[in-house]
Design a protein around this nucleic acid. Structure first.
Lengths: 126, 126
DNA sequence: CTTTTATGTAACCGTATAGTTACGTATTAT
DNA sequence: ATAATACGTAACTATACGGTTACATAAAAG
């Protein structure tokens, strides 16, 4: 099995995850691959609707299709989720940082940037 | 400062993150709070368009608005992203598991489930 | 061969979305 | 008071989206 280093656009991934039905499909697939029809039966909407969701999930590479006779087994592909995890990485630091500290820092930055326009007005406004 | 334990619906969060402009706004806010107009100037689209994106981000609690004179400072709120992180948690195990192993496991599960319907047909198909 | 089963696609529909321009409102400057 | 600034909101438009029903195709069953 060859490993190809594919880059997953956060665009298609986030878009795919934005729909609750599609997230539910992924949740189902965590318990194991399933044929399309079986997935469809788990939802109150029509089978073609699920088929369209699956197409979108396929294009986002979040699932892989494996034809098996007249069935099509859908398998979870977690790789794009790893990309989401990477995207989140940039924000993790903010979970630890006290928001108060952050706010103070940030406002001093803003003050610096606008200081030119404000310089000739009353300076003690803050 | 009181801490209120708010639950963020993954629904609104994922939906907010699905748009590239909104993700870019959040990326900008990582470098510090900014007034709405300054954010708008960073994009090729109109100011009202950004204003609408900000409203959506507000409703998803991904940003907080702080009125300051005639400015409205927008500040990043990472809390809902932590919820996304939690959601991802259920999938992290799949990043380690060999997909080949997973596939084998999963297909045996499927075989088990369909064994009833298949029992009276040729059993050596696999 | 014909029928049934499993699934995708096409065509259509109502609603949501992302953009626009025009306007309203509150705050600061003159 | 009046003008300018920094926003938000309303109204409108084109397109995307999620759903439906009807149809197409391919494999398995009879």
């Amino acid at each position: 099995m060859r490993h190809r280093s594919v880059t997953y656009s956060p665009e298609s991934t986030f878009h795919a995850l934005a729909d609750p039905t599609r997230r539910a499909v992924l949740d189902l697939l965590r318990q194991g691959s399933q044929p399309a029809g079986q997935l469809a039966r788990a939802f109150p909407i029509s089978r073609p609707a699920i088929s369209k969701h699956l197409r979108l999930l396929r294009r986002a590479h979040l699932v892989q299709e494996h034809r098996q006779g007249r069935h099509r087994l859908y398998q979870l592909n977690p790789a794009p989720l790893r990309a989401v995890d990477s995207w989140l990485e940039q924000y993790r630091v903010f979970w630890q940082t006290s928001l108060t500290n952050l706010k103070a820092f940030v406002e001093s930055e803003y003050a610096k940037e606008t200081s030119v326009a404000v310089s000739k007005k009353k300076r003690g406004e803050n």
